[in-house]
Design a binder for these strands. Structure first.
Lengths: 355, 355
DNA sequence: TTGTAAGCGTTATCAT
DNA sequence: ATGATAACGCTTACAA
């Protein structure tokens, strides 16, 4: 391993000058800089990050912790996000450190890693409504950035999120404009913040239009195909069955389409289906039969912003300057259409009570 | 952050003594050690890993690189393994650094990270028959440990693997003893070493018993349910259909069971199914209907050994002392039974040629 | 514009 | 049994 001293010796310079030349300090002679850079390249010099870290006080390592059984099952995007983050961090010569927590205590690994003080910060995924990790890290004064956000309002930490409430509202608006009055909602697990946010948007959009959806037509579960199928199958047997389904993911929508097919219902003739699409490569909504109408916000778009926020946070930026909320695109395809004739009636308060 | 100097000052000792006391050097007075440890705990002292690393020349970081689209689809165990490894490494105060490579050049991230010289070594997953990464790291002289192994023989690097050839032989033996003569093999992707090894074991076991399986009954594809279903459905229409299926994973077996059901065949009455079971929580072979006969080797059992090997390798152990091959357990359940009467005939060479 | 020297927090080599 | 002191490879005042 060539070090600063070696290349200094080779050029008859001091290590300090070499360091300055390599790090773009303005005062060094342009000639010397050229020579230094040339020799550095020739000797295949790489700064020793450990040494750099010792003096800078930073480790250049960002932690990301998987909630072990939970995330794998509920968050198919986890991988995608990790891959994106690691490559973005690499642009800053930073690394992503991976750990896993078990169900018993999701905060434990944070406690351990914070105590070791080896990491510069954490990136959190899939926050829950009252996220323990956020509370711990806030109290500990450790820098972190959240992919998503807890609660319904604007929190006081850096985050990147899509406007989940708006996305539900957009979907309801589209369906309502098509004449639908009985809209079911197959949401994600209730403890996740995004699900709470979407539910809130869904409810407020309904209320604004004088609609109502009985609680038996609002479900919370893992983003899986069989959930979609089973829930839809059940709901479609109802005497006042939904004419439209809003799905938390394309996977769930796939299940709904399957249930519709089995029930002999055509989409969008008899039934409209809309979903939120995280644009995960495995499940391309365009390829659905029929092509799926979606709200779309590619999850990989979050990686760049999250990384930038992390870096800026470590450089001392204010949390309030590191908050981004993007709105999802509404892409109308073939799975949504006008409400079938004779199905224009809505649910009413009594059916809510009756539930 | 309390440092060595602080606690030394507090006790009127030198940092050196404190370091020795904390690191269990035999020469320090037992009294002093007690005092030092007490104060260290009281002051909540944590050694600065960066500083330790600078002097030791080690980073304490092990790299693991995901082959981006490929691994996610083909290797559902990747997560499980990463989680296991990270927690085992934590026992040694080491961390797992995650990166992702894209399809274009799977070696690129290794090149980059090796150049940075930040990591102590790499753990490789799912080696292919002629693994580029192994070739590169070997040439570069960088420590690595492989989960699995390339090729059919014993390589010259540290690895932990199951005996894939033996596993295929065990399965064939069981089926053959039950009278089966027409055994199909739904293997994993052909480029993976484990698939090549299993194929080799499969072929040799057949040969040893004077059996033959035409190539159209040996398939290679992703470990997915629909692969199992489609392949089985096709094969079962053959005039000399297989009486038994050997599947590379429980997922594939699930597909085969589905195909059998659709074809009106009972398992194990009309058809026997055996699979290899990596014991991934999502797909519990016991819960299959009927419960699946499997060769079983929990993938998480590899994490401890892999970590130990890595640590010992870094401590200078010989590669040849760091090679483990375990045999899978054969667990006979309800999906295998005697060959149906009238189906005892085997395939012959001509049907191979005819293929 | 460049060099000298101190320091980041440890561990290891000498002394004592 | 303990203490000085010198590393580890780099950055950064401060001097020149």
């Amino acid at each position: 391993m060539t070090k600063l001293k070696d290349i200094a010796a080779r050029l008859g310079l001091s290590p300090a000058t070499v360091s300055r030349a390599l790090n773009g300090f303005p005062e060094v002679n342009e000639q010397t800089r050229q020579r230094v850079q040339a020799v550095a390249r020739a000797m295949n010099y790489r700064p020793n990050q450990i040494a750099q870290k010792l003096v800078s006080g930073r480790s250049g390592m960002i932690g990301m912790i998987l909630r072990s059984p939970v995330d794998v099952a509920t968050d198919p995007s986890f991988f995608e996000v990790m891959a994106g983050l690691s490559s973005r961090l690499a642009d800053y010569d930073m690394d992503l450190v991976f750990h896993a927590s078990n169900a018993e205590d999701e905060v434990a690994p944070y406690r351990r890693l914070v105590a070791k003080a080896t990491l510069d910060g954490f990136i959190l995924n899939a926050p829950t409504v009252e996220d323990q990790r956020i509370q711990f890290l806030t109290a500990a004064g450790v820098p972190f950035v959240v992919h998503g956000r807890a609660g319904l309002g604007v929190p006081d930490y850096p985050f990147f999120d899509i406007d989940n409430a708006a996305l539900a509202r957009q979907s309801v608006a589209l369906l309502h404009d098509l004449g639908h009055r009985r809209i079911a909602f197959l949401n994600g697990p209730a403890n996740y913040a995004y699900a709470a946010q979407r539910l809130s948007g869904f409810q407020s959009a309904l209320a604004a239009r004088g609609l109502v959806t009985p609680t038996r037509f609002i479900r919370h579960d893992r983003l899986a195909e069989d959930y979609g199928q089973r829930a839809a199958a059940t709901m479609l047997t109802d005497t006042a069955a939904p004419t439209a389904f809003l799905c938390a993911s394309t996977l769930i929508a796939a299940g709904v389409l399957r249930a519709a097919r089995k029930a002999g219902l055509s989409v969008p003739g008899d039934l409209s289906v809309i979903a939120h699409d995280d644009a995960i490569p495995q499940f391309r909504a365009v390829n659905f039969e029929p092509a799926l109408t979606v709200t779309r916000a590619p999850i990989r778009d979050a990686c760049g912003p999250l990384t930038d926020k992390m870096v800026r946070l470590l450089d001392g930026a204010q949390s309030s300057d590191l908050q981004t909320m993007v709105t999802a695109d509404l892409i109308v395809r073939q799975s949504t259409g006008p409400v079938p004739v004779g199905q224009q009636g809505g649910w009413n308060e009594t059916s809510v009570v009756a539930d």
